[in-house]
Design a protein around this nucleic acid. Structure first.
Length: 615
RNA sequence: GCCGACGUGGCUCAGUGGUAGAGCAGUGGUUUCGUAAACCGCAGGUCGUGGGUUCGAUCCCCACCGUCGGCUCCA
């Protein structure tokens, strides 16, 4: 899911900020003209555009957007100047109170509470009849706002607070030129084309069935192939790196989650209780894998000689999420995490973190994610554990990054209540930022579960618990991959690596031979023996995103060759007369190298796209 | 959960206060055709669910469920 991290500083640096913010003013003015009595919330510039939160007398529907846009165009054409002026705080309060602009009054009042409100004055901006409380800056005239479009309507709470009134948020985008606007709209279309929900349906990847339950993903056969390959590779990589892979139960006795603190801190997201033994025993479905892994660690007395003990699991968890937040595979109620907990001593912590970090970077590279940005998130205000522990934990993370000389940003106070963490964010093929792997040092659970090992002096010592995920959840990761690859998976993950198309029925025996030869190498081959029109079968294979389509007929059978067409090739770009063994060699090589596909072209990205603005 | 929009056969969509259509997919047949959609036929829907208004509702009203765009939250 594209994240808006950095949006705030981005807004400040963005040279288009005045344009976008000005467009927000013009939009608010247009709504005020068309719907008198509208109250203004806030209307900031955001990445690629702007929004304004408004309290409109009647609900707006998408049909209203063209009208508002038309009115905006009139205002733009009228070419009013933006004029700045100042009022004292009292004047401002009186002005907006008289105008019935309650939210602006609320804002000014909050300025008073905030420290450093500048000398008691507030600034306002005016264009035409429209006046708004605003820091600015703005463009000079409304005529500077030319290439814009309103995109969507949504609800948003005043000040992002659920307990406060909900306003109507209008999203729009604006650019210096029509050409840039068109390019941006084209990018939005590209995002829609890549939407994993649409591709998931068209390519028969996954399904979410209402009767089965929303937020619960059925992995259909095609995507199950992808997952199986990912899991197989994941296990191999982890075995190579000294991980111990385990399986833990999906439900646990209530005692476990009382001790872990999950019931207290996370209970509203948990499924349960399940009442067993006439209701005397209460069990809950696991929302996280940590307690299970701790129990694995504690299955015996651990010696320092056994550490670091790296316990990993593709662990399926269930979490209740509110209905409105569910989104395809990317926001679900049941998912499988590639979870690991590394138990070690403080001496080993930094090195272990470093190893995890290297592995994480390798993961992202393999899938073609680029421009990783590293964040170190430090202690939040509300937290568990002593400052001493936080010092140690943050230092270990810092050192691990320092040793590697990787640049990173510090997200002060951005850690979770029980752990500081390293987050890796990456860019996908169309320039969207995604949350990648995270590494945390858990300062809570080792205490709660009294996780210890026996050190070289024969003493019990508290173990350090490093928590990490690389994929995150397979559902979210693979959902992201679908969009990243636009459905065109690398050969090693492709459900249909080769489609064999015989020209005519008399080529079937050779086609079967070819298919058998490829299958011998473990290649996933589809040979459709129902003889329909050849062109139709080629087209269908393309629609299924077969990695290669090979056409065989009499000529090929005689020469023991195949006619090869690579996915993504243009019309008439097939390569004829490729020796069968040569083709086998190429395909197995590409598969084993886990190469990115030839039709994978990360776009040269301009400004990155804000997913939120898709209409 | 909240605000708004939407919910017609597997998919995309049309339609009406008097109990429904199209294209694709499916299926049967014909076609045997060397690289991006051959032809003809058939079948498939209690129009999301439950109430209400009405002589009569898929179409109007209400509730619920679900989907979509956001908010909030998060893997």
């Amino acid at each position: 899911m594209a994240k808006e991290l950095g949006r705030r500083d981005h807004a400040a640096e963005d040279p288009l900020h005045p344009l976008r913010h000005s467009a927000a003013h013009v939009m608010a003015g247009a709504v005020l003209d068309l719907f008198p009595g509208t109250k203004l919330g806030i209307g900031p510039a955001i990445r690629n555009g702007f929004y304004y939160d408004l309290d409109v007398p009647r609900p707006l529907s998408p049909d209203d957007l063209p009208r508002i846009e038309a009115r905006m165009r009139e205002v733009a054409n009228a070419d009013h100047p933006f004029e700045r002026s100042e009022m004292s705080r009292e004047e401002g309060l009186r002005f907006f109170r008289e105008a019935g602009q309650d939210y602006k009054v609320d804002l000014i009042e909050s300025f008073e509470e905030a420290e450093g409100a500048d000398g008691g004055a507030v600034s306002i901006y005016r264009h035409g009849d429209f006046v708004d409380l605003c820091k600015g800056p703005h463009v000079k005239r409304t005529g500077d706002i030319k290439a814009f479009k309103l995109l969507s309507i949504a609800g948003a709470y005043w000040r992002g607070d659920e307990s406060r009134p909900q306003l109507t948020r209008l999203y729009g985008t604006v650019w210096p030129s029509q050409k840039e606007l068109d390019a941006y709209l084209e990018r939005l279309k590209e995002i829609q084309r890549r939407d994993h929900r649409a591709l998931g349906r068209d390519l028969e990847l996954f399904r979410i069935d209402d009767e089965l339950g929303s937020g619960l993903v059925l992995w259909l056969p095609n995507l199950s192939v992808v997952r199986e390959e990912l899991e197989t590779w994941w296990r191999k990589v982890h075995h190579e790196r000294g991980y111990t892979l385990v399986y833990t139960p999906h439900i646990a006795h209530e005692k476990t989650y009382q001790r872990s603190g999950h019931l207290e801190k996370y209970g509203e997201n948990m499924y349960g209780p399940l009442l067993l033994d006439e209701g005397t025993q209460r069990f809950w479905i696991k929302p996280m894998n940590c307690p299970g892994h701790i129990k694995v660690f504690q299955s015996g007395v651990r010696s320092y000689r056994e550490l670091p003990l790296r316990i990993g699991e593709l662990g399926t968890v269930y979490r209740y999420e509110r209905g409105g937040t569910l989104h395809g595979m990317q926001r679900v109620r049941g998912f499988t995490q590639d979870d690991s907990h590394i138990f070690c001593s403080w001496e080993d912590a930094q090195e272990e973190i470093g190893k995890v970090f290297d592995l994480a970077m390798e993961f992202m590279r393999l899938f073609g994610y680029v421009d990783p940005v590293i964040y170190l998130s430090t202690r939040p205000e509300r937290r568990l554990g002593s400052d001493e522990l936080w010092d140690k934990a943050e230092e270990a993370l810092r050192q691990a990054l320092g040793v590697r000389e990787v640049p990173y940003k510090i997200d002060e106070g951005g850690g979770v209540f029980y752990a500081p963490k390293i987050d890796i964010k990456v860019m996908d093929a169309i320039g969207r930022e995604w949350q990648g792997p995270t590494i945390q040092i858990d300062l809570n659970l080792p205490e709660r579960f009294d996780v210890t090992f026996v050190n070289s002096r024969g003493e019990r010592e508290r173990a350090v618990m490093i928590h990490r995920v690389l994929f995150g959840s397979l559902e979210r990761f693979v959902g992201g991959l679908i969009e990243h690859y636009a459905g065109n998976f690398p050969l090693w993950l492709n459900w249909e690596q080769v489609a064999v198309v015989p020209v005519r029925e008399d080529a079937l025996p050779y086609a079967r031979e070819v298919a058998a030869r490829l299958r011998q190498e473990g290649i996933r081959v589809r040979l459709d023996e129902q003889m329909a029109d050849m062109r139709e079968r080629i087209r269908e294979a393309q629609q299924r995103r077969a990695g290669y389509i090979i056409v065989v007929g009499g000529k090929e059978a005689e020469a023991r060759t195949v006619s090869v067409r690579r996915r993504g090739a243009g019309k008439g770009e097939e390569e004829r007369g490729v020796a069968l063994e040569e083709f086998v060699r190429r395909v197995t090589e590409e598969r084993d190298a886990k190469s990115l596909p030839s039709d994978f072209n990360p776009r040269d990205t301009g400004p990155s796209v804000d997913e939120a603005a898709v209409s």
